[in-house]
């Protein structure tokens, strides 16, 4: 490869390109994804944007396992410890006798522990799902707003610009209405 003349040019050349092929319906998009795979594009370079969850069977399922249950379990554990130490621990820190009842009474500690366990699950699961979704995004992602009106976007991450033109051809072949390019995916 020749030495780049322009700095700007150089960045364009080495950075990846994301192509979005916009399809009218999910079946066309499905055929496009299959076609891309047939041309040897790895599935993890392809992703699909849609305004509803994709129907089962249209695409090969997104199989990356979710670690969400671990977040929930961690939240449950943290909540349990927090609730128990709040209810039982603070009573022992400053023992005050009331109504002839024990300073730490397990049934009442149980109520607080239960609520805090649930709160822990809820909060940790929220954090977990945002982490797993990659939200909130700081940078504007490659995205075509027409997706929200029912179009399906097929995104392909291309390592070089050269490949991107090849892929553009494939996307068009399967009936993409429009194709948008995003530099630096």
């Amino acid at each position: 490869m020749d030495k780049p003349v322009d700095k700007h040019e150089a960045r364009q050349d080495t950075s990846r390109t994301v192509l979005i092929g916009l399809y009218d319906d999910v079946h066309a998009a499905g055929r496009a994804v299959d076609g891309l795979e047939k041309h040897g594009i790895a599935r993890d370079k392809i992703s699909v944007n849609s305004s509803v969850p994709l129907p089962v069977g249209t695409f090969r399922a997104y199989t990356r396992p979710s670690r969400l249950p671990y977040f929930s379990a961690l939240g449950a554990f943290a909540g349990l410890i927090a609730g128990f130490s709040l209810a039982a621990g603070t009573a022992m820190l400053y023992p005050i006798a009331t109504g002839g009842k024990p300073i730490v009474s397990l049934p009442t500690v149980g109520v607080i522990t239960y609520e805090f366990t649930m709160l822990g699950i809820i909060l940790f699961t929220l954090v977990g799902v945002l982490y797993e979704m990659g939200l909130p995004r700081v940078k504007k992602p490659p995205y075509d707003p027409r997706v929200s009106d029912g179009c399906v976007g097929v995104l392909v991450t291309c390592e070089t610009e050269q490949i991107s033109f090849e892929i553009e051809g494939i996307l068009r072949e399967y009936g993409a209405a429009t194709i948008t390019r995003f530099a630096g995916g």
């Binding site: 006798a97 009331t98 109504g99 002839g100 009842k101």
Partner: peptide
């Protein structure tokens, strides 16, 4: 001045105790 006063444990802020 109940030894097992019903009023005491229900107070959320320990305003009444034994």
């Amino acid at each position: 001045q109940c030894a097992n006063a019903p009023c005491e444990p229900v107070c959320p802020v320990y305003a009444t105790y034994h």
